[in-house]
Write a protein that binds this DNA or RNA. Sequence first.
DNA 1: TGTTAGCACTCGACATGGAAGAGTGCTAAT
DNA 2: ATTAGCACTCTTCCATGTCGAGTGCTAACA
Lengths: 346, 346
Amino acid sequence: MDLSERKLGILKAVIDDYIMTGLPIGSRTISKKHGFDLSSATIRNEMADLEELGFLEQPHTSAGRIPSQKAYRYYVDRLMRVVKLSHAEAEKIKRYFKDRMSEVEQVMEKAAQALSDSTHHISMVLRPQLKRSVIKRIQMVKITERKAILLVITNAGLVTDTVIAVPEGLTPSYLEMIGGLLTEKLSKKTLEEAEQDLICCLRENIGINSDFVSDIISAIETSVEPQGERGIVLSGTQKIIEFPEYMSVEKARNFLSVLETKEMLYDMMKKATKLEFSVTIGQENMVKELEDMSIVTATYKIGGESLGSFGVIGPTRMDYGKVISILGYVSNSLNSIFSNFIESDD
Amino acid sequence: MDLSERKLGILKAVIDDYIMTGLPIGSRTISKKHGFDLSSATIRNEMADLEELGFLEQPHTSAGRIPSQKAYRYYVDRLMRVVKLSHAEAEKIKRYFKDRMSEVEQVMEKAAQALSDSTHHISMVLRPQLKRSVIKRIQMVKITERKAILLVITNAGLVTDTVIAVPEGLTPSYLEMIGGLLTEKLSKKTLEEAEQDLICCLRENIGINSDFVSDIISAIETSVEPQGERGIVLSGTQKIIEFPEYMSVEKARNFLSVLETKEMLYDMMKKATKLEFSVTIGQENMVKELEDMSIVTATYKIGGESLGSFGVIGPTRMDYGKVISILGYVSNSLNSIFSNFIESDD
DNA sequence: TGTTAGCACTCGACATGGAAGAGTGCTAAT
DNA sequence: ATTAGCACTCTTCCATGTCGAGTGCTAACA
């Protein structure tokens, strides 16, 4: 699996060039553009070797070569240089985050926009996985005769709020009392634990109108894990038409239908929450519809813990180096924004 | 401008057929498919007349004819039959609204999805224009040491909630007091009036930390009218690739850039709030990038007043009859959902 | 007078067939 | 080990020809 210095150089040249142009690269191009002091014939021999090793492919007999998936993998693992962002690019991203933001929703949206705008790929941002964050308080505020807002406040400084219906005639102080009860039962627990508790043993302990209680419970539950559609934010789906690889309407449609359901992406992103960076190239993702797409992800932290991930999805021919450096930059931005959400425990 | 019965029939046949197939219609097709007892030659003569009158156009000499914008206008105003939705179609829409929903955001999203799914066009839903709804109460709830949630409760039963920063050391009861003060000053006023008041004469009246007060004010202001991006929900933008008229990448891109900025759409939708239904065909919309798109809108009511509009945008070749009946159905659905948001004034 | 049949004509869609150009593999010379 | 040269392959592009759909016009018909 060890390639000669020269083969490495040629492989890198082919990949770099292909990432830029999207066109198969011929031996002549390489001997000219990239200062190798070798004739095209020599390069040809080397390229033939690389093809035999599975790093290059020919779309047809007399076209140039294009990198294989194996080549991209090798590139990402060993050849790639993660470039530092230019000042202009960094500024462009900063601009998205310049408003002071106090709501997760808004931050996610901005992040998604910044990503797709900078990378020119479709971006995905996973909502924070709050399961492991700890409840500080639960509070209910009556807003009209029959409605209240349920606030769940966690140590991550994040709040989820849901409007719930309340039986007529409940006094505000009564609601407050229930809030107090819930806080007492559930505070110091993670949302995940709380969910368990809610299901099994809360109903009995609070001897009130049971319809109301189950409303509250389901509200807390959905706030813990907003599923599928609401769990992931996409941006820049329009970008696909810019990629020649999706000119075939058939493919484009298939791909879009995957994006629309989101389930698949949601699962992937959730797994990716464990790794600081991940790069999944082509068929590595095991999903047929995405077999010539790559997915690059990174994570963000809230209170020191990786609670969510985000990334981009695009054709395997992707400028991995640049994408990764952009993700890194956004990751830092998110971390610092979210750190403002947190307050030291009292 | 009065056409003979026969010309009318032929015109309708051409439009109906073109809406279905997207292909130019020849005289033969019409004499065969649509039970006219006339030969193709006769139809040809009539079509030549219709072309002279500006209702039909020929893409090139020996193709069939396609309807002109004028024809669509005529069709919508006089020829079209608004078909009743089939049971299956109605059910399909109902399914989107089956969950009990308590938040405007969610309703809008579902409505947009239902629309784009049923019409196969891009759909747009305008957030309720709350300016004219009346404030009932303003309340602040402290959630952490330095944060509070600001709740604005209106007679439309709608709540906007924003997280705001509070100076350290403010007691909950103090916040409650400020809430009470604001309620006293602003309740019974429309949000629009309230905005005026806030700007000119509130600062002096409440002699507190002025940074904090202006935070509150700007939070209320943005809750009154979430501009541009946040004021309109789009769905189904992916649909464009399904339309042959957008195969030219250049056009598609232009169109998408209009959608992305949203400003234009926002203005249109806002104007449309005044009319129960509106149909804007092709160049009637005065926007160059949308010159071969049509926009059909309807409105929804909250508490008897038209507070928002929604609609679809698609190629002029659009099944207007069906689209309008779908909009009608969705309008009813929204009205009944929102009526649950309201509670009788006390 | 309105309708129809017939015919020449036009134009796009599609298939066919070189010619040009890019790139390759192989061989022989350096 | 490298390179120049050459035959070969395959795509792209353009010109050409054919087919079919549709038209407009004229003459005949009811």
